[in-house]
Simulated assay, not measured.
Amino acid sequence: MAKIHATAIVDAKAQLDDSVEIGPYSIVGPNVVIGARTVVGPHVVIEGNTTIGCDNKFFQFSSIGAAPQDKKWNGEPTRLTIGDRNTIREFCTFNTGTVQDKGVTSLGNDNWISAYVHLAHDCQVGSNTIFSNNAQIAGHVEIGDWVIMSGFANVHQFCKIGAHAFVGMSTSLTQDVPPFVLLNGNPAQAHGVNIEGLKRRGFTREQINGIRTAYKLIYRSGLTLEEAKTALQEEEIANPAAAEQIRSMREFLGTATRGIVR
């Protein structure tokens, strides 16, 4: 049987693996599924249509799976999904999705989510990200794998942040961020490539140099975005060692809906 503290309230319809732990005064609603070895600390509320994977750790006072903060929401059965091995610290708020978008808010695997982070409705967050204290993510935002959000960074609704990007402290984002880019400020400005992060993740010198070349084509060449996409396509052919990384930057430019931070 799951280890449930005597003061916790767990609905009889909730589906908990036998190895789950629920701390004092926590509340788990009827439409919640929690996977193996997940630990829910004290004073946590998990509600809504929420599915949580294995080996997660929820610290105290978080609100997980509450209704979206969207005036258009009218009680539709939207969802929140959380993957495996995530750490979710104190006072986080994760909301379910809306029918105006995908209907689901999702968080992948192996993410480190620090205190007071807000993950709004319909956000799609990948894996291996780090969100520092008070990072605030508005609705419909897409965040790729390995992104780092520094403390007090905030993201406007519908923005996209590409994989391996680094967003500096107190940065205010209102446009999209291509993969690998390091940026900071309010308003945000690009300041180069997240080289230190790429080194730590095992990118080769050739790959990093190719990413830097692609960055210069986008940010330092004076090209329009359409011209930059053409130049990036040519660079893919000329630089096979970094072709995959350059392609990801080029393809991101084709999907950016709010323009890029430039």
Results as ranks from 00 to 15, higher is better:
F58E: 07
F61T: 04
S63P: 03
S63L: 13
S63Q: 14
A67W: 01
A67Q: 03
A67E: 08
P68G: 06
P68K: 00
P68L: 07
D70M: 07
K72D: 08
K72I: 06
W73G: 02
W73N: 03
W73T: 00
N74D: 09
E76N: 02
E76Q: 09
P77A: 02
P77V: 03
T78Q: 01
T78M: 03
L80T: 06
L80S: 06
T81F: 04
T81E: 15
T81V: 15
I82Q: 05
G83P: 08
G83W: 08
D84S: 03
R85H: 13
N86I: 10
I88V: 15
I88W: 04
I88K: 00
E90S: 09
T93R: 07
T93F: 03
T93S: 15
N95I: 05
N95W: 02
T96W: 00
G97N: 04
T98S: 08
D101L: 01
D101Q: 09
G103L: 05
V104L: 03
V104T: 12
T105A: 07
T105D: 07
T105N: 06
T105H: 07
S106P: 02
S106L: 04
S106A: 13
N109E: 08
D110S: 08
N111H: 08
W112I: 11
I113E: 00
Y116F: 14
L119K: 05
L119D: 04
H121Y: 10
D122E: 06
C123M: 13
Q124W: 03
Q124A: 12
V125L: 15
V125T: 10
V125S: 08
G126V: 11
S127C: 06
I130V: 15
S132T: 13
N133T: 09
Q136I: 11
I137H: 01
I137W: 00
G139E: 10
G139Y: 12
V141Q: 11
E142F: 03
I143K: 01
G144W: 01
G144Y: 01
D145F: 07
V147K: 00
I148H: 03
I148L: 12
I148V: 14
I148N: 05
S150T: 10
S150Y: 07
A153R: 04
N154Y: 02
N154L: 03
F158E: 06
C159R: 11
K160G: 04
I161Y: 07
I161G: 01
I161P: 00
A163R: 14
A163C: 05
A163D: 05
A163I: 05
G168D: 05
M169R: 02
M169Y: 02
M169W: 02
S170I: 00
S170W: 01
T171F: 08
S172L: 11
L173F: 11
T174D: 11
T174F: 07
